[in-house]
């Protein structure tokens, strides 16, 4: 997979992007923004025609595109339907994405003897059998697309009693088996750490990162979540700014994995486009601090108020 695009759309060494959602279409297409790529959810652009196709065409004129799928259900024992794959392949051929990704989860299954799609990212049991299924499906998808995928770690709200390996071992072995790279969602690690009552969620997350080989990561996701009362599970709702723990973990991730493309996700309780881009600017600033290069900086927003958040960690 190549991240090189021979044009000026890519603005820095560490590519920084934001999730492009419907409510931001107009501003994203008409406002100058200091971002390198936008991520869209593939399934939202599966229609054969209509306004969304036009938006995607315009967006790909302005930004590099990352296609993030949320419905492929790569770990489904039911398999990924050919019809779905065909649509994804068609979409990829029209927008020439720099990245393509989905999650280590399942979505397709059977219900009352009929094929069903869960409409959600359902967790996998980290077992040898699940690893075989997931690896087999990813291999098929990668063959079909003719490129490698990025596979994202999940926030899970239930744990399987018959899981027989940690999530990190499962993902590392998956990458070794299939040649895929990992999309490390830092928020998901923090959410899981909190939900399994890890004594020190940030330590848990740092250890999680330490268990992933340095060459295996192809993208980082940043997001925020709504705080909950004690005893409640945190939902990975992408409804807030990135937490201070998220930013701390991001610094560690860059120090460990190097100049990895980074995306800020915000899906619910959407802020203004300006606020979203400001989150991307924070990520860029951290990257510049970690790698000591500021030649790529095109940050135009007032940073004074943000600096303390990064410097005094």
């Amino acid at each position: 997979m190549s991240l090189q695009r021979p044009n000026e759309k890519l603005k820095s060494d560490v590519l920084i992007g934001v999730g492009l959602r419907h409510q931001h279409f107009t501003e994203a297409l008409t406002t100058p923004s200091n971002i390198d790529f936008v991520e869209v959810h593939s399934e939202n652009f599966f229609a054969q025609g209509g306004a969304t196709q036009s938006v995607l065409a315009q967006a790909s004129e302005k930004y590099a595109i990352s296609l993030h799928s949320t419905a492929m259900g790569l770990g489904s024992a039911q398999g990924v339907p050919s019809q779905y794959l065909q649509k994804l392949k068609q979409l990829a051929s029209t927008c020439n994405p720099i990245l393509m990704s989905d999650h280590a989860c399942f979505s397709w299954s059977q219900l009352n003897g009929q094929q069903v799609h869960a409409g959600d990212l359902l967790p996998l049991a980290y077992s040898e059998q699940t690893l075989m299924v997931l690896a087999h499906n990813i291999d098929r998808v990668q063959q079909s697309l003719g490129r490698s995928l990025l596979v994202e770690n999940l926030s899970a709200y239930i744990q399987y009693s018959h899981a027989c390996m940690p999530e990190t071992e499962f993902l590392v072995r998956l990458a070794e088996l299939t040649g895929c790279k990992l999309l490390v969602d830092l928020n998901n690690i923090i959410v899981t750490a909190n939900n399994i009552n890890a004594a020190q969620p940030l330590d848990y997350a740092q250890q999680w990162l330490a268990e992933i080989p340095t060459t295996m990561v192809g993208e980082i996701h940043l997001a925020g979540f709504t705080e909950v009362k004690e005893g409640e599970l945190i939902i990975d709702d992408h409804s807030q700014a990135v937490s201070s723990q998220g930013w701390q973990l991001y610094r560690s991730a860059l120090e460990r994995f190097g100049k990895i493309p980074t995306l800020v996700e915000w899906d619910n309780n959407l802020p203004s486009w300006h606020t979203l881009v400001a989150e991307a600017d924070k990520a860029r600033m951290i990257a510049e601090q970690v790698f000591g290069d500021n030649h790529s900086s095109k940050v135009t927003t007032a940073m004074t108020g943000l600096e303390s958040e990064f410097i005094h960690e």
Binding site: G75, S76, A77, Q78, F106, S109, Q110, L111, L122, A125, S127, E128, Q129, T130, M132, V133, H136, Y160, H162
Partner: peptide, 11 residues
């Protein structure tokens, strides 16, 4: 066998 077992769990 893996597919069958996982399919059952997922269902």
């Amino acid at each position: 066998a893996a597919f069958e077992q996982v399919a059952q769990q997922q269902q």
